[in-house]
C-alpha cells in the first residue's frame, strides 16, 4: 500500500495520538546507516572523526531506509572519551572504553568539564548540525546525548560507580555535577543547530540496578535541569532507555518526555509489556517507541525469511 502521509505528517500525527498510514519509524540505526555510505567500508574511527562523514550516514541511510526520524546517536562513549578514557575503535564494531579515565575517588573530584568544541563532542555537534540542515525539511531530526550517570559509568566503569555510590557518595556527586555541566554545554551547542528534538539516554533508570530513591539521587536531580534546558533551547525532550524494569513513573510521568523509546523483556518478571505500558497510562501524554531487536532484525531474520511467491 502506498504511503499517504509524508514523514513529518506521520510523525506529527503519531505524536498527537492521531491515526497514521503506516507504522512510524523512529530508528537508532546509525550502524546500518554508516554501512550504506559509499562502498560500505568506512571505518568507525573515520566516521566519528569528521562531522561530514558522521552526517553522511544519516543522509544516505534516509535514502535507503525511508525513516520518519533521524536520530544522531554516535555511541555511548563520546563523553567518556573526551574526559580522557581510552576508547577502542575496531574498524566496524561499536567502540568501547578499554581504560577508564576515572580510576580513583580523587579522579572523580579532579574531573574537569570537557570542552564541547573539541574531540568527539565537537564532531557530534557539528555532524548533527549537518544532517539537520540536510534532512530537517523532510523528517523529524533529533540530537542524541548520554545522560550524566551513563557518561560517568562509561568513564569509570559501571561496577566501580555503583560501589562508589555507596562508599564515596560525595565524590560521585562531584563528578556528576561536572558531567551535568558538560551536558548543559552540549544541549546549548545542539540547540544552536536546530534539531527538532534531543534524545537523552537515561539507561540506568532500571529497577535491576537502582531503586527510586537512588535513581532520584544519582540521576533524577541532574536530569530534571537538563530536561528543562532542552526545552528552553527549543528542542522537544525525548528519552531512550533500553534497560529492563525501567523507571516509567519517573522517566515518563515526572520527566514528561515527548517520546519515550524502550525495550521489552517478556522473560523478566515485572518488566512491563507493551499492553501494560499503555493500560497504566504511560502512553496518555507521551509517544512510546517500541523496539525491533537489532540483531534479530538483521541477522536472525535470514533463516525466518521466505521469498515471496
Amino acid at each position: 500500500m502506498a504511503d499517504t502521509m509524508n514523514h513529518i505528517e506521520r510523525a506529527v500525527a503519531a505524536l498527537g495520538d492521531k491515526p497514521v498510514d503506516r507504522l512510524t519509524a523512529y530508528p537508532l540505526a546509525m550502524g546500518v546507516c554508516r554501512r550504506v555510505v559509499g562502498d560500505g567500508k568506512m571505518t568507525y574511527r573515520d566516521w566519528v572523526s569528521d562531522p561530514k562523514k558522521f552526517a553522511s550516514a544519516f543522509i544516505e541511510g534516509q535514502k535507503r531506509f525511508d525513516f520518519d526520524f533521524a536520530i544522531g546517536l554516535m555511541d555511548l562513549s563520546v563523553a567518556a572519551g573526551d574526559m580522557g578514557s581510552v576508547v577502542r575503535m575496531d574498524d566496524q564494531n561499536t567502540p568501547f572504553v578499554t581504560d577508564p579515565a576515572l580510576k580513583t575517588v580523587e579522579d572523580y573530584e579532579k574531573l574537569t568539564v570537557p570542552d564541547v568544541k573539541k574531540g568527539r563532542s565537537h564532531v557530534l555537534v557539528e555532524g548533527t548540525g549537518l544532517f539537520v540542515q540536510a534532512l530537517g525539511s523532510q523528517l523529524i531530526t533529533a540530537a542524541f546525548l548520554e545522560g550524566p550517570l551513563l557518561s560517568l559509568t562509561q568513564a569509570a566503569s559501571a561496577e566501580k560507580v555503583f560501589m562508589d555510590m555507596y562508599n564515596n557518595r560525595s565524590a560521585v556527586h562531584k563528578a556528576l555535577k561536572t558531567i551535568t555541566e558538560y551536558n548543559g554545554d552540549m544541549v546549548k551547542a545542539m540547540g544552536a543547530k536546530k534539531p527538532a528534538g534531543l534524545v537523552w539516554d537515561y539507561l540506568w533508570g532500571s529497577y535491576s540496578c537502582l531503586g527510586d530513591a537512588e535513581y532520584e539521587e544519582f540521576e533524577g536531580q541532574y536530569a530534571r535541569g537538563l530536561n528543562e534546558l532542552t526545552g528552553k533551547e527549543g528542542m522537544a525532550m525525548c528519552i531512550h532507555n533500553c534497560a529492563d524494569l525501567p523507571h516509567l513513573d519517573t522517566q515518563i510521568k515526572a520527566f514528561k518526555p515527548a517520546i519515550y523509546s524502550m525495550a521489552y523483556y517478556p522473560l523478566i518478571p515485572g518488566s512491563p509489556s507493551p499492553k501494560e505500558t499503555i493500560e497504566k497510562g504511560y502512553a496518555d501524554n507521551c509517544l512510546i517507541g517500541g523496539q525491533i531487536d537489532p540483531r534479530a532484525s538483521c541477522a536472525g531474520a535470514r533463516r525466518r525469511c521466505r521469498r515471496p511467491p
Partner: peptide, 18 residues
C-alpha cells in the same frame, strides 16, 4: 577476547555474538 560497553541489550549483543 574482551567485550565491553554500557548498553547491555544493543552494544554488547552485537559485539558478543560476533
Amino acid at each position: 577476547k574482551e567485550i565491553s560497553g554500557g548498553c547491555i541489550c544493543c552494544q554488547i549483543a552485537g559485539n558478543f555474538a560476533n
